[in-house]
Design a binder for these strands. Sequence first.
DNA 1: CGAACCCTTGAGTCGGTTCAAAGCAGGTGG
DNA 2: CCACCTGCTTTGAACCGACTCAAGGGTTCG
Lengths: 251, 251
Amino acid sequence: MASRTILKRIDLEQSRSVCSACGLQELCLPIGLDPAEIDRLDRVVEHHRMVRRGDYLYRAGYPFRSLFAVRSGFLKSCVLHDDGREQVTGFHMMGEFVGMDAISTDVHTCDAVALEDSDICEIPFVTLEELSRTVPALQRHLHKIMSREIVRDHGVMLLLGRMKAEERLATFLLNLSQRYCARGYSGTSFHLRMTREEIGSYLGLKLETVSRVFSKFQEEGLISVQNRYIELKDVAALKAVIGQAHGCQQS
Amino acid sequence: MASRTILKRIDLEQSRSVCSACGLQELCLPIGLDPAEIDRLDRVVEHHRMVRRGDYLYRAGYPFRSLFAVRSGFLKSCVLHDDGREQVTGFHMMGEFVGMDAISTDVHTCDAVALEDSDICEIPFVTLEELSRTVPALQRHLHKIMSREIVRDHGVMLLLGRMKAEERLATFLLNLSQRYCARGYSGTSFHLRMTREEIGSYLGLKLETVSRVFSKFQEEGLISVQNRYIELKDVAALKAVIGQAHGCQQS
DNA sequence: CGAACCCTTGAGTCGGTTCAAAGCAGGTGG
DNA sequence: CCACCTGCTTTGAACCGACTCAAGGGTTCG
């Protein structure tokens, strides 16, 4: 046990991949913690787990042990219905968490797949709970993260339940833009890490529809698309797509 | 402060609406707590808040203070898009929780409306967090409840993204059935508490479609409908509707 | 008893899917 | 270095499921 701890410390020193040195502090768990508390968190987090493109971080049915934070890379999570239908439930970029679905039953209920080589921090949940009992700021933040996931899902439900194809795509692009922005990247030009089919699965559309709408947006000068490379040319117009497409009987 | 506490205690004694005497213990927060812990929870929960049919428990934009548990009655929660479109994000019956969306921003992000006169327990969140720091079983259960909401939402996303109208209705009815069952009521005959329009809003369908599918199910002998009164005549066939309606290339 | 609301049913329309074919990029091996 | 292959994307044409619009009947409650 002691040797394992020592190993861990050395590993931490070498890689410098500790929370206290992490650029994502402001987005991730350490938010609002003081240095001493971050240090305690550091000892709990198992940094530096690599997941190669196409590999699973976990699959539905795996026993639950940890939450995961994306340090770098890009993941999707998806639920699989008995009959083979797959629904992508989310895309996850650095600073975001996955695995919270598994807390309820101690079993993962969806798959998490890396869409590009990804660097993952693993946070054993029992230990996190323990720690959050003595660090109220951490406790609160954990609750906020779970709550944020619920709010996000409600947004997707609204999208899937009430929006037309063009509104869905516009919402999707603006959401990506905003998230890249928040991480210090360009919000107006970025690479999509997922296929048209995966976008469609997330938005409740077929891949052909996604492709057609992209083409239409491009014709209209809202965006420019070249394969996975997207440029948002007219953000205001994209925003205007949402809501005007239909209904909108706001007198 | 002291007088307020005394008032509260008296109120508790009189109404007997305390967690320790509540029939929903096994579904609600007290699950897994020992009597002493339940007693501590009792002092925190503000029992007996009445919400009349049609009234709001809270609305989007209200400041967040508490989680709510449904003691009796029936609620819906819904998000409102800027342009007036409404999406019902859930129906809530006794033993279920609402308000968790508000933790992330300290502001409620959706409305909660009573569909019939409802009896609500209010749990001030700061106090609940405090208590859960010293009662691990409570902490874990709170996490499970939030996680369960996330899993539920993923299920709805699958439904909205990939299912046809008939599958959605079948899923909806079977889900209600299962929840009534778990509460000791009949799982094969019950009253719907919501309108066709609200069902449609939840399932991403128009009210006319809901009505038509109900009629079709009735013709086929799967259910019988009389207004809001539903009887499930052939549960197996209802289950078979899901997945067979389309795709299902599970050779 | 009347008004407001809810539900059902029909006919026509349309958005997104399905099916099909062809173009394109990126990687592999000869 | 080119040829090939595989997986991804685009585009077209036909189809269909759910929506829209509309009218009529039922229920509930003041």
